[in-house]
Each structure stands twice: as C-alpha cells, then as structure tokens.
Design a protein around this nucleic acid. Structure first.
Length: 278
DNA sequence: CACCATGTTCCTTG
DNA sequence: CCAAGGAACATGGT
C-alpha cells in the first residue's frame, strides 16, 4: 500500500480491532523482513503483551504495548488485516499472531517490508508532513542548500516524512513546480505554496480513504491503485481517475490539455505537465 | 521474454 | 566527512 495516506487509513482501521488485544503465538514466516532482531527474540519479547495503541510515524506503523514497541513498514506491497483465527494463512504471510478470536496477518508479496523493535529508522526521519513542526519556513530552509532536483528532495524522509513517488508528483503538479527543478531554486513563496499543496494532497487522499469501503485483505478481486483494496465501486474513486498527473504520461493535462510527460529521476518515474509546471 | 511497480538501505563515487 | 546516484532487495502484473 504505502504512502502516508494509505498507512494512516490502515492504522485507523487496525486500531479498534487490535486495541486491548493480547499478542499470542507470534510467527515469522518471512525472516528477511526482520529488522535487527531474530524471530526467537521478537516472539519472546512480544508474547503475552497487550496492544495499547496503533500509531504511525511517516510510513512506519507502530504497535504500542505494555512492553517494547513494535515498528513495522509495508514496503511496496505490504498488507495488514485480521481474519478468523481458524482460517489458513495467506500465501505471502510474513508475520502473524493471534489477537483474541482473530488472527493478525502481515503479508508482503515482494518482501520489501520490515518489522522489529528498533527505532533506528525513526530516528533519521524529519517532520511529519501533516504535523505542526513541518512549516513553510522549515521546508524552505531544508530545500535551500542543495541543487538536487526538488522531486528527489521531497522523497527524502529526513526532509519531510510521509511522501512517496505518487504523491510527490501530485503535490508538485498542484504547486506548479517541475520535478526536475533544482531544490535551491524554489523561492520562499514557492516553498510556501508547495507546503500547502503537500498538505492538501495528503489530506485529500486521507479524506478519500475514509469515504471508501476498503478491502484490506485484497481478496475482493478489485484492485484500483493506491487504495487498491477496493473502492466503493465508483469509477471516479479509482486511482487512474483520481491522480492529476501520476501515471498519466501521454494523456492530456486535466488543467490545460497539454500532453503529460514522464521523466526518470534516480530510477523512479516522475510525471508533470510541461505547461503548468515550471 | 522485457519492462514496470506505492520503499528503504547499502555501496560507490565524487 | 558528506552528498548524490545507483543498485539491490524479491515478486507479480502487463
């Protein structure tokens, strides 16, 4: 799933289901997801603990307990959900445990996700994109000292935590800035605008996620992009229809009709309108 | 078969 | 030492 909005929606979904539940029978089926810890150690530490809350830091998911806090990341293809305790484990299950009458499933087809109790990754993160410490001024300051393209800077979680490849393209389109623009060329006024569009872009996505009926296990057969777990069926809620520029290379800009372009930066695709974005 | 994919980390280069 | 860029990680979809 994973950029900030998808993780936020997932956290809100999991919270009421896991809060107050005891962790029992934790199993790791994909050991390569373990972050600086062994299966035995993780299972030993978490067994019997009660989950107090589910939180989020950037794209990381935090399981707060009456003991150590578990830190997890979905990578590119991670999913988390609960299913009946008696049901067979899904094919790509990476980690699972029993929570009350249900079984918690963390599955990850591509195995880019992670889980552990180390906060090393969290330590390196910058301000939350939707938090109070992330200000227009701070963004401007962070962009000043580098000639690296703005797209790359916004992907850096130490600059701002939560943006990923899709929403960076979307936010840059909304702010009229080309992904290739050197970050130190972003004026104070543009940084202010960019700050606003980042928050609007993420906020709108969360709002949409709240409004949809989602299938977190992905077993409904529907796959509509980022909230790929089903949409309520409305065509306009599908990813392709929602995005302003992401994935729309060769199609016409929704604002001016110019053909949308793609440029590869650091091995990742960026999309932009050559007229609307300077 | 070729190419693409929502992310992070590690290694190399400058 | 630091910044930037690329590759690696592993698998599925088109």
């Amino acid at each position: 799933m994973p950029e900030l909005p998808e993780v936020e929606i997932l956290v809100r979904h999991l919270r009421p289901q896991l809060q107050g539940k005891r962790i029992r029978g934790l199993q790791v089926l994909k050991p390569n997801l373990l972050d600086r810890i062994s299966e035995e150690e993780l299972a030993g530490l978490m067994e019997g603990l009660v989950i107090r809350d589910i939180g989020r830091r950037g794209k990381f998911i935090l399981f707060e307990t009456n003991g150590p806090r578990m830190v997890s990341h979905l990578g590119m293809t991670g999913r988390m959900y609960l299913q009946s305790a008696g049901t067979d484990l899904p094919r790509h299950t990476a980690v699972t445990w029993i929570a009350g009458r249900m079984r918690f499933i963390f599955e990850d087809a591509r195995s880019f996700g992670s889980i552990g109790i180390s906060d090393a990754s969290l330590q390196r993160m910058g301000p939350e994109a939707l938090g109070e410490t992330f200000t227009p001024d701070l963004l401007h300051q962070s962009l000043k000292g580098s000639r690296t393209p703005i797209k790359n800077r916004l992907m850096d979680q130490s600059i701002v935590a939560g943006l990923g490849n899709i929403y960076v393209s979307e936010a840059l389109f909304r702010s009229g800035i080309r992904p290739t623009l050197a970050s130190n060329k972003v004026s104070r006024a543009r940084a202010q605008r960019l700050w606003s569009t980042i928050r609007e872009t993420l906020g709108d996505a969360i709002e949409l996620g709240v409004s949809l009926s989602l299938d977190f296990s992905g077993t409904s057969g529907r796959n509509d992009g980022l909230f790929y777990f089903g949409s309520g069926g409305r065509k306009e809620d599908n990813a392709e229809e929602r995005f302003l520029v992401y994935g729309r290379e060769g199609k016409r800009c929704r604002q001016c009709g110019t053909v949308v372009r793609k440029v590869v930066q650091s091995n990742r695709s960026s999309f932009y309108c050559p007229v609307c974005q300077k």
